[in-house]
Design a protein around this nucleic acid. Structure first.
Lengths: 224, 224
DNA sequence: CCTGGGCGTTAGGGATCCGTCAAGATCGCC
DNA sequence: GGCGATCTTGACGGATCCCTAACGCCCAGG
């Protein structure tokens, strides 16, 4: 569950945010001034921070600096309309986004989702996961129950082709051409041997394949 | 220099942005509709994208989806005031920020800086540590049990490549090209010799490698 | 009941790849 | 020019992998 810390001194805003965020399954904690807010960031380690610039005890940019000193937790700033120079100061201090009051709750929630999405580790590398094993295509690595599975180059090529086409059928001809070359188009023997080896290394029950499925007469399909 | 692509069909906006961004030392390219915009993203690989939602040929969210399909380049959306549901749709489609027209140029520039700052990869942890030795990539230094390990230039290049790709497999071709040059692509001899030297200097049991692993037929992998 | 095709499984020979060693060749420094 | 460090190159045993053939199973059709 995503944890949100709201730092604001207006009870009505706190209440509205708490209700709306809780209803959408966020975990909400609050603070009513900069000092206790900074302490709450350190204590609760929220996933995202919503910060009102008009706090009674500190300047908003100082709060941002205080947070940015040691963590890159996303910060969404709230402020009254009009203070453009304050917007610039907040963003340059390290805030991630800036919403002017009065704001639409839907917009705030969308910006919240965007901030959390950006902060979460980018799924840059294509990783295929199943309940029984994991295929990291970028690292060329297969893990099963925490241990690396050793694949030969040919086995890996075959698995990679099938995994990149997860869910779709790949014909024998396609597989043979990609892995062995055009002149091996009809050596379906090879496929049977190597599919069997992959099943032995990956399937929980190699004789009853759950992931590397045979489509008789057609080809094979990787089911994630 | 940061490269910005502006996709907008209003000449006045394009002009204003071009002038302001160029003056602040951004490199600006422009497109006037979604189709050419998507092509420009693929061709120019901008560091950040400014996108008007009201394009003549495509819906703005479709442009966002088209970009997000293959890259995480930051997207700042421009739109006329008021369409709150469009804001939500754009942000959920993968936009990073949303600015309503008319906008203050200072604010846009600040949001641009914030987007670029977030996107720039955090400075790589320049130190790789294992239970048996430590690699300081910045200082070009390897320490083992408190003492410096002396590496030749070639050994260091090889180790650095593998360490920067920690966990990922690096093919022999990649290693040979990076260390010896493109014409040595097939001299896998060299690799065998130098990997053996690194193992002798770093591995606790050079004959049973724990960190510099061989993936037969494919390449090598540094396991931290 | 027989037959043939598609598939899964196994095993071994031969080819390829890898680790190791050592002897030149080359470079840089004094 | 001498000398040590470093880089290239070749060769060899052993490990690994690929190809191939053979066999059994299942099922559909004759």
């Amino acid at each position: 569950m995503t944890r949100v810390l709201v730092i604001d001194d207006e009870p009505s805003i706190l209440r509205a945010l708490r209700i709306n965020l809780t209803a959408r399954n966020y975990e909400v904690t609050t603070a009513i001034d900069g000092t206790s807010g900074l302490a709450a960031v350190a204590r609760d380690r929220p996933d995202v921070l919503i910060l009102d610039m008009g706090l009674p005890d500190m300047d908003g940019t100082d709060v941002i600096h205080g947070v940015r000193g040691w963590t890159s937790t996303p910060i969404i700033v709230l402020s009254v309309w009009g203070a453009e120079s304050q917007k610039v100061a907040a963003l340059d201090a390290g805030a991630d986004d800036y919403v002017t009051k009065p704001f639409g709750m839907d917009e705030l929630l969308a910006r919240l989702r965007a901030a959390v999405r950006r902060a979460s580790p980018a799924p840059d590398e294509p990783v295929v996961t199943t309940p029984d094993f994991t295929i990291d295509l970028a690292a060329k690595r297969v893990t099963r129950r925490g241990a690396d599975v050793r694949l030969t180059p040919t086995e890996w090529q075959l698995l990679e082709l099938l995994a990149r086409a997860a869910g779709r059928l790949v014909t024998q001809r396609q597989l043979l051409q990609e892995v062995w070359g055009p002149q091996y188009e009809s050596e379906s023997n090879y496929l049977r041997v190597y599919i069997a080896q992959l099943r032995r290394k990956l399937e929980p029950e190699p004789s009853r394949p759950r992931y590397l499925l045979t489509e008789p007469g057609m080809g094979y399909r990787f089911q994630a």
